[in-house]
Design a protein around this nucleic acid. Structure first.
Lengths: 201, 201
DNA sequence: CATAAAATGGACCCGCAAGTCCAGATCTTG
DNA sequence: CAAGATCTGGACTTGCGGGTCCATTTTATG
């Protein structure tokens, strides 16, 4: 492991992580070998272990971090600005569009399900991702409560948790069945519940 | 592959599947080798390939079918009898209890995420499981609509889909974080939405 | 420009686990 | 009880893929 990274070194490291992520997206974690990554990124075996001393596990962890960041960033700027019903709709559409075009490949779920429970590092990545996601949604709910669009007896964290769970499940089901129906239903039901909260008191 | 199974043969086959399922529950798919299964079930290599000519994949598929059946049966008889609010509550408790005690191990999600998208067989198992689960819930909703406990403008299939997605996501998150909060929130929010439907019109 | 650290290439090792094979035991059924 | 199927034991092969090693080249820095 290098003490300090050269500019060239940092570039190579990044190339490896991105190449590995792409390979995994294309062919799955199970089917991706270090040799595949090596071939795709035009690097040598020693480079892989130079930048990821822990071997494959290290590399997978770096990929998981990259993909976790992607999951959030692809929802922006909508996710950070849930301040009106049209904004919620825009976010909803964005999420659906993303998974529609991404089709069968949810890189993060794939990666984490591979090393999910095993390594504490990967677990931390997932936990943080969920926390951020849920936090953004909860902030949106509080904002809507402040402007009187959502009833104040709604628990922002709990509702956000339910919504995140629904999205996760919807994506998971899509990965197996190929259908977007469940994701669409979960998003719709979750947002509808918020929207109707005012009227139901 | 045997043309017909002897009584003894059937027993052995079953012993293998159940042993493999237990091993996977204990140590994960990744860490489970055919030798582990062989040791645990007191069988020989040739027996494994005698009953599962397709090798590991065949065996995993059989395990997936077993676990899928378990997922449903553990929710019975409640899942098949969602005809009153107390019944819904009982079902909810059962699901939570099950995953609470099962802790970090969701055998089905583990198995399917391993070969999920790859093999059409495993995909069929998951698709069918989801369909049955969702169908049972939808039936319960229709029953409650008939007795006036749920508003008639609720789409049973869509609501059931959202609920199943929430449960799946909640379980998935529990697998990574260890917390039951999301599952609990998803179940609570989903049922609450149904319960409030009458009042919100 | 000298020197030490970092980066690179690629040959090599090694263990593991899936899968093969066949001899022999056991069962079924006419 | 005989014959053909089914079942079982376990040694063996094989390939793959993660990980090691070291020689060589490139880069930073005084």
């Amino acid at each position: 492991m290098p003490g300090t990274l050269t500019a060239k070194g940092a570039a190579t490291r990044q190339r490896i992580v991105e190449g590995a992520a792409a390979e995994i997206r294309d062919r799955g974690v199970l089917a991706t070998t270090l040799d595949d990554v090596r071939a795709r990124t035009a690097t040598s075996k020693s480079q892989l272990f130079h930048y990821f001393p822990g071997g494959k596990e290290d590399l997978l962890l770096a990929v998981a971090e990259l993909e976790a960041a992607r999951v959030i960033s692809v929802q922006q700027p909508h996710l950070g600005d849930l301040t009106s019903w049209p904004a919620w709709e825009a976010w909803r559409e964005r999420v659906l569009d993303h998974y529609r075009e991404q089709g069968r490949r949810c890189p993060l779920n794939v990666v984490t399900s591979q090393l999910g429970r095993s390594t504490p590092g990967a677990q931390a990545v997932v936990t943080e991702l969920i926390a951020i996601w849920q936090g953004e949604i909860a902030t949106g709910i509080r904002h809507m409560q402040a402007s009187g669009e959502i009833a104040t007896d709604v628990d922002p964290n709990r509702s956000a948790a339910a919504l995140v769970a629904g999205i996760q499940g919807g994506v998971l089901i899509m990965l197996s069945t190929g259908g977007l129906g469940h994701l669409e239903a979960a998003l719709g039901a979750g947002i509808d519940a918020l929207r109707r909260s005012r009227r139901s008191r």
